[in-house]
Simulated scan of single mutants.
Amino acid sequence: MTIADNISTIRARIAAAARAAGRDPAGIRLLPVSKTRPASAVLEAASAGCTRFGENRVQEATGKWEELAEDHPEISWAIIGHLQTNKARQVARFASEFQALDSLRLARELDRRLQNEGRGIDVLVEINTSGEPQKSGVALDDAVALCRQLGAFDSLRVRGLMTVALNSGDPSPVGACFQRVVDLQERLRDEAGGVSDWGELSMGMSGDFELAIAHGATTVRVGQAIFGPRSYPASA
């Protein structure tokens, strides 16, 4: 199976999951996650109609952007992994979307860097819905307070929420993570509606995106089901 074949299969599964949930498949965006994959794989996916790609690591994303930007300006990048404030300058240079905002300090620094670049960026607030301490994201109890303050940053176009659900073969706790985001979305519309309409919900990856669609995901982040198993450099 080629990357294009895999994308076609994933799109068909997205459409089927949407119809099963009584939703319009056109309302669900596929974000291919190209981390650890070379620029050539990104171009294969782009030939199948994908134009925005998710990357976890800023340094890797920057390298691919620099390699492809001149000849392929239609390709854009979404940073979906945890971001340290000292990397905000790099993100402000090229990224079109940032899905892992989890602190006021980071919002302030990213906005400052974007102002310097004369750019704006679409932003999602990452929510830690599983409560796992090793995961990034703002805690559910702190999310409303953070989100209320994001309207102060002109360069951050706040679109909605993102989460990485519990990694489990049992759909019940995974679905519970997704439902917590939906519940928070409704609360934010009541309590922070002046910041955003909170319409974007980035939920679901290769192993659980159909369940995420059933709970209302508008973006699904799919990596291995498109590009195949990831290969990481061996430890020294």
Score class of each variant (00 low, 15 high):
1 M>T: 12
3 I>H: 09
3 I>K: 06
5 D>L: 02
7 I>M: 04
7 I>T: 01
7 I>P: 01
7 I>H: 08
8 S>C: 12
12 A>R: 13
12 A>W: 04
14 I>V: 07
18 A>D: 09
19 R>Q: 14
25 P>E: 11
27 G>R: 05
28 I>D: 06
28 I>G: 02
29 R>Q: 14
32 P>E: 06
33 V>R: 02
34 S>M: 03
34 S>I: 00
35 K>G: 11
37 R>P: 08
40 S>F: 05
40 S>M: 03
41 A>F: 11
42 V>K: 02
42 V>I: 15
53 F>S: 06
56 N>W: 00
61 A>Q: 09
65 W>E: 15
67 E>N: 11
69 A>P: 00
70 E>F: 10
71 D>I: 06
72 H>L: 00
72 H>S: 01
72 H>D: 01
74 E>F: 05
81 G>A: 09
87 K>H: 12
87 K>V: 09
90 Q>D: 14
92 A>K: 02
94 F>W: 10
96 S>W: 00
97 E>Q: 13
99 Q>F: 02
100 A>Q: 03
101 L>E: 06
107 A>R: 06
115 Q>M: 01
116 N>W: 14
116 N>E: 15
117 E>S: 00
118 G>Y: 06
119 R>I: 10
121 I>W: 07
122 D>N: 15
127 I>P: 02
127 I>F: 04
128 N>D: 12
128 N>A: 08
129 T>F: 04
131 G>S: 08
132 E>V: 09
134 Q>S: 15
134 Q>Y: 05
137 G>N: 02
139 A>S: 12
144 V>W: 03
145 A>V: 12
147 C>N: 05
149 Q>L: 12
149 Q>I: 11
153 F>N: 03
155 S>W: 08
158 V>M: 10
161 L>Y: 01
165 A>K: 03
166 L>N: 00
168 S>G: 07
168 S>F: 07
170 D>P: 07
172 S>L: 13
178 F>D: 00
180 R>W: 07
181 V>T: 13
181 V>M: 11
182 V>L: 14
183 D>Q: 14
184 L>T: 03
184 L>W: 02
187 R>S: 11
188 L>N: 07
188 L>E: 10
189 R>K: 15
193 G>C: 07
195 V>H: 07
198 W>L: 08
198 W>M: 04
200 E>L: 10
202 S>N: 05
202 S>M: 02
205 M>V: 08
205 M>E: 10
206 S>F: 05
208 D>W: 10
210 E>A: 05
211 L>S: 04
211 L>Y: 07
212 A>T: 08
218 T>I: 08
227 F>C: 03
228 G>T: 04
235 S>A: 14
